[in-house]
Simulated scan of single mutants.
Amino acid sequence: MHEQPILCVRNLNKQFGGGCQDCRETSTRKLERNYCSTCGTVYACQDISLELFPGEILGIVGESGSGKSTMMQCLYFDEPVTSGDAYIHDVELEGQNVFNLSSQKKRYIRNHKYGMVYQNPVKGLKMNFSTIGNIAEKQIAAGNRNVTTMERTGSELLENVHIPLFRAKEEPRNFSGGMQQRVQIAKALSNNPPILFLDEVTTGLDLSVQANVLDLIKRIQRESGISMIVVSHDLAVIRMLADRTIVMLNGAIIEQGLTDQIMEDPQHAYTQRLVYSLL
């Protein structure tokens, strides 16, 4: 790929705790997995660098506790980073480390440049709002005030994610898990963001429902050309969706490459175990 990445992350670090003499220095850090047993600091993300290209689906795979969801929360500004840089290739934001921007600017990015679909729909939806109201909320946050336009966009998006329009006024708490995820996807797409984050979106869903959600994600990507980062502990999900894959373990990237390449010739022992468990 010769084009410029739409998102470039450099040396993202996120720790929970202040650190001590045993763990503060990266080169001499003594950790059990990513935890310092002396002071209890957790190094959730250690020096994460990645690039996301236009129209690409980048998969992040790793077991529970590997840091992949924390990384996602940092990128979406749900969690402050300990250190690191992130740049969005965009006229208004060119050359600005988005982690250092004001909370107002970060809100602007969340409302216009990013979409987020959480593992738990409760985080992404207001369960006592109507479904179409949830989608409108995201549009209002981005400054849209035209009710007719919002209703039309909301209806189109619900049709797009296969939610029957006669249920548009219903609250998402009445919906199944798979339907709630589809409403979240519609909401995340309501401002045509160039970048979509999907965090463990099929976890806890029945296999047939999982397949529907994955098909939907593939179709949206194909039709809109949106760039996506997809986080999962399930390599089968990543294999179906991702062009390139990053493997994380204990807060660090241990392997990355084209998804096919990682599936066919995994280098790291942990990746090999992941791949062979699929076969």
Results as ranks from 00 to 15, higher is better:
178 G>H: 05
177 G>W: 07
266 P>F: 04
158 L>P: 05
22 D>G: 14
279 L>Q: 15
33 R>Y: 13
134 N>D: 13
140 I>M: 12
167 R>T: 10
4 Q>I: 05
193 P>Q: 12
150 M>R: 05
217 I>Q: 01
24 R>T: 13
53 F>V: 02
214 L>R: 00
221 Q>E: 05
71 M>D: 07
4 Q>F: 05
62 G>A: 09
47 D>V: 09
68 K>V: 11
104 Q>A: 14
191 N>W: 04
42 V>M: 11
210 Q>Y: 00
2 H>V: 14
133 G>R: 01
275 V>N: 06
38 T>A: 07
232 S>Y: 00
149 T>R: 12
29 R>S: 12
32 E>D: 15
158 L>Y: 01
169 K>P: 13
115 G>P: 06
9 V>Y: 02
196 L>E: 03
141 A>C: 15
144 N>L: 14
132 I>K: 02
206 D>I: 06
178 G>N: 09
2 H>K: 14
233 H>W: 06
41 T>H: 05
209 V>L: 06
184 Q>E: 10
78 D>M: 08
183 V>I: 13
85 D>L: 08
129 F>Q: 04
155 S>T: 07
241 L>N: 01
103 S>H: 13
20 C>K: 08
20 C>V: 07
271 T>L: 04
231 V>R: 06
22 D>L: 13
193 P>R: 11
9 V>K: 00
146 N>F: 09
179 M>D: 05
137 E>K: 05
205 L>E: 07
17 G>R: 07
234 D>T: 03
15 Q>D: 10
206 D>A: 12
35 Y>E: 11
196 L>G: 00
205 L>H: 02
93 L>H: 10
159 E>P: 08
247 V>P: 14
154 G>Y: 05
78 D>T: 12
33 R>E: 12
246 I>D: 08
41 T>D: 11
201 V>I: 15
120 N>Y: 08
